[in-house]
Amino acid sequence: MNEKLKETFSSFEGKEEELIPLLQKVQENLGFLSDESMEEIARFIRVPASMVYGVATFYTQFRFVPKGEKHIMLCRGTACHVKGAPRIQEEVENQIGIKVGETSEDLKYSLENVACIGACSLAPCAMVNDSVEANLSPKKIEKLFSTSGGR
């Protein structure tokens, strides 16, 4: 078994109830859930791999492809929607050249929708890695992600 996985498992007891925390920890350490890691988790807590896969695909937090260097989570909460989130999404997709749910081939960007990040009073907003970008506008998106320069 992969050393990193072994290390991750060491803080768990191997109980069935630990499945979700295990998936979260593995994703935190590896960046995503590979087929191999899910099979190892299944062996570790002694359940069928199909069950691990079933739980992992149920929750939106889990991803099965690696994250990009810049992981963008676009908020699609109500406040963001009424303040123009769909337009923001189009602009981001235009700027970085991938659609929601995708990771760019050079692993520079990944783009996801998230139900709500709870910064509704500063809508529309997005999370780029761990920081919240607030009061977005198409112009601001261009500044943030413009391939010629920007951050």
């Binding site: 630990e18 979700i20 925390p21 979260q24 079933g54 937090q61």
Partner: peptide, 25 residues
């Protein structure tokens, strides 16, 4: 503390319990 994994339905009591038990919510 149990960290939710992003499923709106887990706000429902019995789904939340299933989630804490490590199942689909």
């Amino acid at each position: 503390i149990k960290e939710g994994a992003g499923a709106f339905v887990c706000g429902e009591e019995t789904a939340l319990i299933a989630s804490i038990e490590g199942k689909r919510g």
